[in-house]
Design a protein around this nucleic acid. Sequence first.
DNA 1: CAAAAAAGATGATAAAAATCATATTTTATT
DNA 2: AATAAAATATGATTTTTATCATCTTTTTTG
Lengths: 225, 225
Amino acid sequence: MSKCEQCIVREFSSLKALNKDELLKLANCKTSYTIKKGEPIFEEGENINGIFCIKDGVCKLTKLSANGKDQIVKLVKPGELLGQRSMISDEPANLSAVALEDMQVCFVPRKEVIGFFNVNNDFSMNVMKTICGDLREADDSMVSMAQKTVKERLAQTLIYLEETFGNNPDRTLKIQLSREELAGMIGTATESCIRLLSEFNKNGWIELIGKKIAIKDKVKLKRLS
Amino acid sequence: MSKCEQCIVREFSSLKALNKDELLKLANCKTSYTIKKGEPIFEEGENINGIFCIKDGVCKLTKLSANGKDQIVKLVKPGELLGQRSMISDEPANLSAVALEDMQVCFVPRKEVIGFFNVNNDFSMNVMKTICGDLREADDSMVSMAQKTVKERLAQTLIYLEETFGNNPDRTLKIQLSREELAGMIGTATESCIRLLSEFNKNGWIELIGKKIAIKDKVKLKRLS
DNA sequence: CAAAAAAGATGATAAAAATCATATTTTATT
DNA sequence: AATAAAATATGATTTTTATCATCTTTTTTG
């Protein structure tokens, strides 16, 4: 059992508000997991009964639509918490969480989190602000989906991926999504996504290096989005 | 100054958790407004610095998209609170609120609400659960926008409007939206919305009585959505 | 009440996007 | 390494949706 006190990612989440005593309590009740790329952390409809703290690796939050396609609602980075909404609403998860890379996560039982929640005002305020931020982003995404073209959404998403997850030394996007997953983020058919990537490539706005994508002309992409 | 203690709609919002003392405090700090149909309660980007409690009338929460169209993100009924997200995040409103009917609303300054928030756990938990519910709904809407056709979204929205706001004696929807507003809810062009309403009408699924809409075959609509 | 403005309706056309088919490349498996 | 499976790519076609134009009806305003 590793000490939460020494965990660096803690500083990036709501948990930064916990004091030494609380961190000891946390370390005692948490369980650590390793999740392989492609594996789920939890699934839509599941009773998760606690929160997950992402120590390493990125995962996608998806929702299965009626037509059988997985819509990606959000990507989650190390330092972020999963399952906060379910914990507060005391409802099953309404999204699935699936690892995009090999991950390390810690699970903290609901009961313990609620305990911190009730005694530590900074902590509960942090959680609430996070959820409020998610709500604002969800509203913005909804408007994008409703009002922007697929081309605009693709440009927007590529910029988001670069700004959020950064680049490899060869300037390609560090986060590696399949074409199908990228299509699932922007809400379109995989073929349409691939076709538009080809078009962007021909225009010189991006470069396709195998399955990887490098942004060449961020200004043009930004103007489009 | 009317007494909050005797206000019925209070029972439907997070404010139901307030005790007698707190309600007296609330009545002392609140200001009541009348808002005419079509007028804004607040606008996107505005610093609202408090919450609004809807006593009577329905309003729409909209966001202006890059192409100049107003996307309707949510409809808000009597008993609900507005501006909770902005209050917690301490950020300007990211949506505009515009009255769809003549309204009566009360404004409560941020400072007072935060006060209740810190001392009354049931109240803060209610607010949080509401925001979590909004987040779940926003995620669901996003997936609908991304994955469903306009026809499916129209069917879904008509059923939602009937189930949420009910019918007039002539079976038409009680909530009165213009075709442009309905298009703004489902995220489509006004003409497309009108065209599909005509089609649904010809199919016998709905009936168009002037500008009003009556649902005739909910089963068929539900199957479509 | 008449004129003007706004909202609703419908046709024609263009643009966007999905679907189906098929080929190529990459990755996984035996 | 050979084969199978999966992912990527592209063409052809159809469907969906937006846009523009025009007309009718309803609502507002002087």
